[in-house]
């Protein structure tokens, strides 16, 4: 019986100049290509007022997502601004997770140098089983949260949530520090929640497929589909909540001059 190789880090499948192309990156590109094809198909419908089946399906998904996020934001103008970010997070993560259980992902291998020696590494690997991917999405989301917060409340007003003169408002200064830590903790929690779930699912499927290759993995594949959907939803909904907090929370503090609560709890 051959050994099961599990690597926490994604594997490099090729080099372009000094740039390493990871197997998870290939999956991300495939997911992007799939979404670009979807865009082309949607565009070819000419966005008719009386839609065909395909356009109606896309509209159903998009309007469903919009209504879901708008029900959290409670503001149509802000919902429109946040929607591209949170919707892309959801669609990209779910698609990446689901593509991760396609046949061939993890099972098609190539011989390549990994950790100093030639070994068989998977050509494709679930994109969210790579910290680089989940961290990239998490950083993008949190940067966007700061951007929208500063844009809606004003840069100085928004930054006062983090920075206060310690000699005038020592408590607020301390709370601001906690807020800043909270923002970083959000990135970490976002990153490792998604990575942990997908990596764990990948390991679980690998082990089950190794032990009982036929039939037994099917319920776990179904569970991974569900987990993939839930993880995308959690990531997108939490981003929406953080966006909502960023554009409203601080103003309430101006009104009653109450101490700023650390948002780390939310993360």
């Amino acid at each position: 019986m051959s050994k099961v190789a599990i690597s926490l880090a994604s594997e490099t499948v090729a080099h372009v100049g000094g740039f390493e192309i990871r197997n998870t990156m290939l999956m991300a590109w495939l997911a992007m290509v799939a979404l670009f094809i979807l865009c082309a198909c949607v565009r070819s419908t000419r966005y008719k007022l009386i839609p065909g089946r395909f356009q109606a399906t896309v509209e159903w998904v998009i309007s469903g997502l919009y209504d879901l996020f708008a029900s959290i934001v409670h503001d149509d103008r802000l919902s429109r601004k946040f929607f591209p970010l949170v919707s892309t997070i959801f669609i990209f993560i779910v698609l990446g997770n689901w593509m991760g259980i396609l046949p061939g992902v993890g099972s098609i291998t190539i011989q390549a140098m990994h950790e100093g020696h030639m070994t068989a590494i998977p050509l494709f690997r679930s994109m969210n089983a790579d910290v680089n991917m989940t961290l990239a999405i998490a950083i993008s989301a949190i940067v966007a949260v700061q951007f929208f917060g500063a844009r809606e409340l004003g840069a100085s007003s928004y930054s006062s949530k983090f920075i206060a003169a310690p000699w005038r408002h020592p408590m607020q200064s301390f709370v601001g520090l906690l807020e800043m830590i909270g923002e970083f903790s959000r990135i970490i929690s976002f990153t490792f929640r998604l990575f942990g779930n997908i990596f764990a699912g990948e390991v679980l499927l690998l082990v089950i497929s190794y032990l009982v290759p036929y039939v037994a993995p099917i319920p776990f594949l179904a569970m991974e589909l569900f987990v993939g959907l839930i993880q995308g939803l959690v990531f997108a909904l939490l981003t929406t909540v953080f966006l909502k907090i960023a554009v409203t929370e601080h103003e309430a503090h101006h009104d009653d001059d109450a101490p700023v609560l650390p948002a780390a709890a939310a993360a």
């Binding site: 082309a40 949607v42 007022l49 991917m133």
Partner: peptide, 24 residues
């Protein structure tokens, strides 16, 4: 990955979200 993600947001917003929401 961040650049990829940004490109994806732009393309989806340009060709899917905005036109679809507009038509809705």
């Amino acid at each position: 990955q961040m650049v990829n993600f940004a490109i994806l947001i732009f393309v989806l917003a340009r060709f899917v979200y905005k036109p679809i929401l507009k038509v809705i």
